[in-house]
């Protein structure tokens, strides 16, 4: 389970993983929604780096384009739009739910961790081919073996676009 020796790769992972974990905590701990969003941006950015360390370079860059570049900008846009309209709306008050939620989360963490101890033995190793994440390989698989799911996802995206336009229109 634990690594035998400390390698440079492990140190890099520790740094990136630490930033990602702290940023994830920041998302739920900052009362201010913009700061939460910023933490999430940082988290996604570091995750892209982790994807690179796993060898999935296309997905790493797609992560930056899709998540930090588009989705989080959209989030910030909406937060700021609501902030402009009603600055006091987005502040939160304390609640009984909070400690309960934390306890439940910790319980879930412990349960899954106990399962993982059994499930992941030592025999897992980085055994994929070195080029398994390059655009060529991913594209070839995506457009042959996974062509049908890809089309379905395309339809889903179109439906999403039409739906969000309908939601945003004041009068149809």
């Amino acid at each position: 389970m634990l690594p035998e020796q400390i390698t440079p790769g492990l140190l890099v992972f520790a740094a990136m993983g630490g930033i990602a974990a702290l940023a994830a905590l920041g998302v739920i701990l900052f009362p201010n929604a913009v700061r939460s969003a910023l933490c999430l941006v940082l988290n996604f950015f570091v995750l892209a780096g982790l994807y690179f360390t796993l060898g999935a370079e296309l997905l790493g860059i797609t992560q930056i384009v899709v998540y930090t570049g588009a989705i989080m900008v959209l989030f910030l846009f909406v937060i700021m739009l609501l902030n402009l309209a009603a600055p006091q709306q987005l502040n939160e008050k304390g609640d009984i739910k909070k400690p309960l939620g934390v306890v439940m989360g910790l319980g879930m963490l412990a349960l899954i961790l106990a399962q993982l101890q059994v499930a992941i033995g030592k025999d897992f190793g980085p055994r994929s081919e070195a080029n398994f994440g390059t655009p060529e390989v991913v594209g070839r698989t995506l457009f042959t073996l996974y062509a049908f799911p890809l089309e379905i996802v395309g339809i889903l995206l179109v439906v999403g676009i039409v739906g969000s336009i309908l939601l945003a229109k004041r009068k149809i």
């Binding site: 790769g9 360390t53 879930m108 993982l116």
Partner: peptide
């Protein structure tokens, strides 16, 4: 990456999911 066990990635993912 060299020397990083699978468990490290899974643990990080698990932590993020719990958060």
């Amino acid at each position: 990456m060299q020397g990083v066990p699978l468990f490290a990635y899974i643990a990080l993912a698990l932590f993020m999911f719990t958060v």
